[in-house]
Design a protein around this nucleic acid. Structure first.
Lengths: 209, 209
DNA sequence: ACCGTGTAACTATCCAGTTAGTTACACGGC
DNA sequence: GCCGTGTAACTAACTGGATAGTTACACGGT
């Protein structure tokens, strides 16, 4: 009696749930957003494709239609995030203090961005040519600022940039044990403001030598 | 002909593979080491219990006997690593420069330690009471150094510690795109030495204000 | 008529955890 | 010295549920 299954299919003709409106772009965007949330939370290995589809309110199949497979969906999320950060956090005239401030603010407003970047570094390899170019531009901007005497020049630009990158995450990236040991709520607004000031003061100390 | 399998069993009476010598402590230690390597590489979600057993040359079942389950094995690895770092990287008299140097050296010699710590922060929650106590001690040491005027006191100890923690990872934790953009081999010994010096100079700048 | 968009049901594989044992060894009686 | 018995250490094979990826079909606009 194999054919009996067909009855089940027919039994829910149109009433069960209204189908998603047919808008490929919107669906794709919804999947990308859902994937961003899921990957940020669980990483590549921990993320679940079914959960992404569910979050997006879309059918799982569409992930494979639009993105290929789980890995390439992850890549799409990484590219998207990476481009967004690069655009939102510039390095105007090699000003590393402004950069650190912008990066801190961006990470605070978009916690997913930092997590995605970290998962990517840990679970997936090589940078894209686009990212590489972006980093080269930044190093160049720092080197120019050094020539103009606005940034100490006894340390290579790459060193300075690596340090400021780390510092600008502030304690948003600190071990939770440190938060706990320090007491209080590390995310309280006035605490964050003080923290931001402290971080920027430290960056200033570093780039002035 | 199901019984034919028994022939296979009989055919390799003692020659096939010599069993592991019966030493519970050694086996447990081998499993912990194998788990450390596996978890460092793949994280909690990406690690495979079978692979851990294989790496250790032990039977998978023993993981469940000795550690409970995958999560608790991960916890055991984290505790082990955490204790090792705390012991190897002291904060003598609140000297944050010495601390940064020791931490950099430790991470360089034990890359697994940093990866485990990060996976833990991302995939698993709360710090243990033991860690908390260790962090409190460190904050206290910094506060004392501040009182003795050896460390700037216009920034809270927790802020300074969070910053130095990040800085001391140097570009061992930097995005691979930065390495690539900077050119050359970032792990070459003389390059690392220069990097270490630069990082320590920056830490000095920060703690002196 | 057909293609792009969407759906539900299905499949093959993987994998954490279990079952049902076997093997090495210590120890006590003889 | 040897043998039986209990126990800790170890093992192979299995199981059930989860999960990435697929198939087969439906519908609507052009």
């Amino acid at each position: 009696m194999i054919g009996s299954t067909s009855v089940g299919r027919v039994s829910a003709p149109t009433a069960a749930r209204q189908p998603r409106p047919r808008d490929a772009e919107a669906t794709k965007a919804a999947l990308l957003r859902a994937a961003t949330t899921e990957f940020a939370e669980y990483g590549l290995a921990g993320a679940r494709v079914d959960r992404i589809a569910e979050r997006a309110g879309a059918n799982k199949r569409l992930i494979y239609v639009y993105f290929g497979d789980k890995d390439r969906l992850f890549d799409a999320v990484v590219d998207d995030q990476s481009r967004a950060v690069m655009a939102a956090v510039p390095l105007p005239d090699g000003d590393l203090v402004a950069f650190a401030a912008a990066r801190f603010d961006y990470i605070l407003a978009n916690p997913e961005a930092r997590r995605i970047a970290h998962w990517r570094a840990f679970e997936r390899g090589e940078p894209t040519e686009e990212e590489l170019a972006a980093y080269r531009l930044r190093l160049q901007a720092i080197a120019e600022a050094q020539q103009r005497g606005r940034v100490r020049d006894d340390l290579p630009a790459a060193e300075l940039f690596a340090l400021v990158l780390r510092m600008s995450e502030g304690w948003l990236a600190a071990p939770s044990a440190l938060w706990a040991a320090a007491g209080g709520d590390p995310m309280a607004p006035e605490r964050l403001a003080r923290h931001r000031d402290a971080m920027l003061a430290a960056v200033r100390s570093v780039i002035q030598g």
